[in-house]
Simulated scan of single mutants.
Amino acid sequence: MSVPAEENVITPNSMDTAAGLAPASAVSGTASAPASHSNAAPDPDRAVASRVRTFDNAQLRKDFDDQSAFLYLEDFLAPEVTAQLVAAARALLPEVNRNYLPGHKQGGSVSRHTIDRLAPFIAQLYRSKELIGWLEHLTGDKLLLSPADDPHAYALYYYTKPGDHIGWHYDTSYYDGRRYTLLLGVIDESSCRLDYELHTRNPEKADERGSVQIPPGGLVFFDGDKLRHRITPALDNEMRVSLTFEYVTDPNMRPWRRVISNFKDAIAYFGFRQVFSQFARRNAKGEGV
């Protein structure tokens, strides 16, 4: 199902140079090795607050509602935050778990468990109170962090080989409540596009198709159960990396749904070791989910 991650690190693009970053070296195989960054990480709350205060947030909430819980912003992240994510994504290339599901998806993933060990800035951004508060304004919901054993809570998705893609799907929530997906552009040296269809679950509105190519620092935010979407195939010598954050309105999950969710994550994304070793470790410690 999965194959070893590629060892050839693609040469950093112009964003690394523009951000004043040296090329990020590959992380070592040890559990304690952090992703290398040449600059100190910015404070996530301050960086997010500096951006969202410049937006017309009332209009953005209206747009989100009018588009059946969907929003695209070409320029969202502060440049210093984007630079940190680019460096982390390149440093984590040796950790990528690749998968191939005929007729549906091909690509690589790095789960939150690996990110926690090697790129803690991403976890800090995910937990940013300013970010969560802004997203709550858009949705009108109280948003909660995904449980600690959910590998999708924050994860990096890599499209680095010809044909890497994911077919039409919904980000189905196995939780009792809603699950919102925040997709952030990190690296885009590709022709890949996010194709989507709005209003597919709303019988009062006609379906509406759209397509965007998400630049580094761009944002897509949506209710996973409402947006039908796909990523078009990568071509030769292309690279696309995106980061997703998942927030929920109810962190409870029924046991039979948890079984389905765990096997889906193991087969289609992160591998059995990542999914089930974390799950078993937490159960052995008697930790809740």
Score class of each variant (00 low, 15 high):
L92G: 03
P147D: 12
V186I: 09
A280E: 01
P42G: 06
G29N: 07
D116Y: 04
G20V: 02
A47I: 08
A89S: 15
H37F: 11
V259G: 00
E6V: 07
I132H: 07
I132P: 02
T54L: 09
A284S: 09
S32M: 12
L183C: 06
T17A: 11
Q213G: 12
K264Y: 11
H152W: 13
G224Y: 04
A58S: 13
Y158S: 06
S28Y: 12
G133T: 05
Q59F: 01
G163S: 08
T244I: 12
Q59I: 00
A153L: 08
F276E: 00
I214G: 12
L227I: 13
A5G: 15
R281L: 03
L92F: 08
G107A: 10
Y126H: 14
R240Q: 13
A26S: 14
L182T: 15
I115E: 01
Y158M: 06
V52G: 14
L101N: 05
A19P: 13
H169V: 04
R281D: 04
G224N: 04
V241E: 02
F121V: 05
L198H: 08
T54M: 05
R257A: 07
D164E: 04
L198D: 06
G29K: 11
N252H: 13
R257L: 06
D45A: 03
Y269S: 12
V48D: 09
F121M: 05
N13R: 06
A26E: 08
A268I: 01
K264M: 10
G140R: 12
S191W: 01
Q213D: 03
A69F: 10
A123S: 15
R254L: 03
F76C: 05
V3W: 14
R179E: 02
D207T: 15
R230H: 05
G108L: 06
V3N: 05
R282H: 06
D65T: 11
S191Y: 01
E238S: 12
R61V: 02
E208P: 00
L198R: 09
K105G: 03
K226G: 03
N39R: 14
A58W: 08
A49L: 15
W134S: 10
V81Y: 09
R90P: 04
A206N: 15
A47P: 04
P44N: 11
L77T: 07
A31T: 08
Y180R: 10
V81A: 14
K142P: 13
G107E: 10
E208A: 13
L85G: 11
P251R: 13
D43S: 14
A33K: 06
A41F: 13
K161V: 02
D171V: 01
G108W: 04
G185P: 09
E208K: 15
A206E: 15
V259I: 07
D188N: 15
E246F: 08
V248I: 13
V248D: 04
D195E: 14
R254Y: 01
P44F: 03
L85V: 10
D236K: 14
N13S: 10
L144G: 02
Q84K: 05
G20F: 09
L118G: 06
H169W: 05
T139A: 10
L183Q: 13
T139K: 08
L60Q: 10
G218Q: 10
E6W: 10
A31C: 02
P162H: 00
Y159D: 02
S261Y: 11
A88M: 09
G271R: 01
D141M: 10
K161E: 13
P44T: 03
L219Q: 08
S242L: 03
V27R: 13
G107S: 12
R282T: 02
P215H: 07
A49T: 07
